[in-house]
Amino acid sequence: MKEDLDVVVLILTLLTFGCPLPAIVMAFKIDERTIGDWLDKAGEHAQRVQDHLVCQGQLDLGQVQGDELWCRSQRGVLWLATAISVASRLLIWGNVASGRTEAMITDVVQHVHRAARLQSPILWATDGFATWKGTILRIFRSAVQSGRRGRPRLVEWAELHIVQVVKRTYGERTLRRLAFGDLFEALHVIEETQGKRGTVNTAVVERLNATLRTWLPDLTRCSRHAESDAQRLERRFFLTAVAYNFVRPHRSLRVLVDGRWTERTPGMAAGLTDRPWTIEELLRFRVPPLQTVA
């Protein structure tokens, strides 16, 4: 039974980092449906781990970049919206939908709001998709008590800023603009998270999209292994997301410790863990049950 568990962990590790499913089937002589069932269960568990560790608040996110990417499925085009903290490279959340919908963006923004420390400075950098701005302004609000009866007035966070990067076609230059907030403060957040040479851009989340397409064959635009539905793709995305955050160190996050360069995971950079995990540790992580109010 122990050997069987080792095989499951090995197969899930290979799949998490982009090994094609047909190669796994041929190498281990295991039915594709069985492996798919393992992936679904591991993905559901990873989603709970992500929600528990990342989206419980008290994180100074600084600059957050949001974007969407699309892929083909057996039932049409699917969209994946993601948000990432630039300073720590922490992938905060993602949502898969059958269209580029407001509900998809809302789910991502709500989880970022849960992860962020209340009223902490935060800069959102997105593309020109207008739904991002409207959703952020609707969710990143706090109640202002006036002493009067009735529902308190909701106002946007004082340290909330939104910038947009609109890419033009036909040789026109990229348009960078402030959509909400203070330009000076927004540039200050960019300098803190990207350095003095930082500019208004969505380069970090676009680099994340490239990594996801590498690790998740289902996201490849011309894939021969198109996923069957949005729910299954979302489960596998979260397995990849947690591995991205807690398992694989990033060279861009390395720090000098005692004269030696030490590579860190985004989870380490965000202060959520003190060492890289293994896939087995991820699968064995126990998520506390939700507490219900009597």
Rank of each mutant, 00 (worst) to 15 (best):
K2A: 11
K2R: 14
D4V: 06
D6W: 15
L14G: 07
T16I: 11
F17V: 13
I24R: 12
I24D: 00
M26I: 09
A27Y: 13
K29A: 15
D31T: 04
A46E: 14
V49M: 12
L53W: 06
C55H: 00
C71S: 13
R72L: 12
S73D: 14
W79Y: 14
L80K: 08
V86A: 03
V86K: 08
A87I: 14
A87D: 08
I92M: 02
N95G: 13
A97Y: 00
E102S: 06
M104C: 08
I105V: 15
H113G: 00
L118C: 07
S120C: 14
A125R: 02
G128I: 11
W132P: 01
G134M: 02
G134P: 01
A143L: 08
A143H: 07
Q145W: 11
G147D: 07
G150S: 09
L154K: 10
L154I: 02
E156C: 12
A158N: 08
V163N: 04
V163R: 02
Q164R: 12
V165L: 04
V166E: 06
R168I: 01
R176W: 03
A179Y: 02
A179K: 00
F180I: 10
L183R: 15
E185A: 15
A186M: 06
H188G: 12
V189T: 13
I190G: 01
T193N: 15
G195I: 01
K196S: 09
K196Y: 13
R197C: 03
T199G: 08
N201P: 07
T202E: 10
V204N: 14
R207M: 03
L208A: 09
A210V: 08
L212R: 15
T214Y: 04
T214G: 15
S223K: 05
A226S: 11
A230H: 07
R232N: 13
R235Y: 03
R236K: 12
F238N: 06
Y244V: 05
Y244N: 07
R254I: 08
V255G: 09
L256H: 02
V257M: 04
T262R: 10
T265F: 00
P266D: 04
M268R: 00
A269F: 05
G271L: 09
T278N: 03
R286Y: 02
